[in-house]
Nucleic acid binder design. Structure first.
Length: 175
DNA sequence: TGCACGATCTCG
DNA sequence: GAGATCGTGCAT
C-alpha cells in the first residue's frame, strides 16, 4: 500500500475522480487505531465556470482552499448538520475538487464524515503528509469498471446539472 | 446586522 | 413529503 503523492492530485478533477474509485481512504485516530475504507463513489467539481462548483462564486473564505495546489482537503458544512469531504485537485489558481460521496459499507457523503469523525478541523489538511487522513493505492486494483451519472442535488446549476460527473464503482469487475 | 439557502439524511 | 439546523455569501 502506497500513499498517493502530490502528482496524483495535481491533475484535472475529471481525470482524478474516476481514479479515486477503488483507492483506500485511511483515517488514523492514534498509534493503534487506523481504519481503511474503499472509495466507491465520487463527484467532480470543475472550476469557476461550473455553476455547481462552489468556486463559481469566486474566491471566498470558504472556497479559498480550492485555489491551492491539489492534494488538500476541502471540508464544508451543508444543511447545518453534515460535513462534506472533498479533495482539491489541479494546480494553483485552478479551483477544482472531488467530493467523496461513498465508501464501502457507507454510502452518502454526510454519513461517511460522521462515521470517520471528519469536521471543519480537516479544512486544508494535506493528504500527502497528514498523520490522520490520507489515501493509498491498492496494489492490483487499477482500471476498475465504473458508471457515470449526473451529479446529485445541484438542480440550480443550469446546463451544468446534466454533466455526467458522478462516478460510481461497479459492483463487479473483471479483476 | 439580517436573511435565504444549501454538493443531506431520516422518518413517515 | 417534510423537518432538522447553521455557516456562508450577499444584500441591507
Amino acid at each position: 500500500m502506497i500513499r498517493l503523492q502530490r502528482d496524483f492530485f495535481t491533475r484535472d478533477a475529471l481525470k482524478v475522480a474516476p481514479e479515486l474509485l477503488g483507492k483506500s481512504l485511511v483515517r488514523r485516530f492514534n498509534d493503534t487505531i487506523s481504519e481503511k475504507y474503499l472509495i466507491t463513489e465520487v463527484e467532480a467539481y470543475c472550476g469557476e465556470e461550473d455553476l455547481a462548483c462552489h468556486a463559481s462564486k469566486g474566491r471566498t473564505t470558504r472556497t479559498e482552499i480550492m485555489y491551492h495546489n491539489g492534494g488538500l482537503v476541502y471540508v464544508y458544512l451543508i444543511y447545518g448538520m453534515y460535513w462534506m469531504l472533498n479533495i482539491v485537485t489541479s494546480v494553483n489558481e485552478i479551483p477544482q475538487a472531488v467530493l467523496i460521496r461513498g465508501i464501502k459499507g457507507f454510502n452518502g457523503p454526510g454519513k461517511l464524515t460522521k462515521k470517520l469523525n471528519i469536521d471543519k478541523s480537516f479544512y486544508g489538511e494535506d493528504l500527502t503528509n497528514s498523520d490522520r487522513i490520507w489515501i493509498e493505492n491498492i496494489e492490483g486494483l487499477n482500471d476498475l469498471k465504473y458508471k457515470t451519472t449526473p451529479r446529485i442535488g445541484i438542480d440550480y446549476a443550469g446546463e451544468w446539472k446534466h454533466k455526467p460527473w458522478r462516478f460510481i464503482l461497479s459492483e463487479k469487475s473483471d479483476h
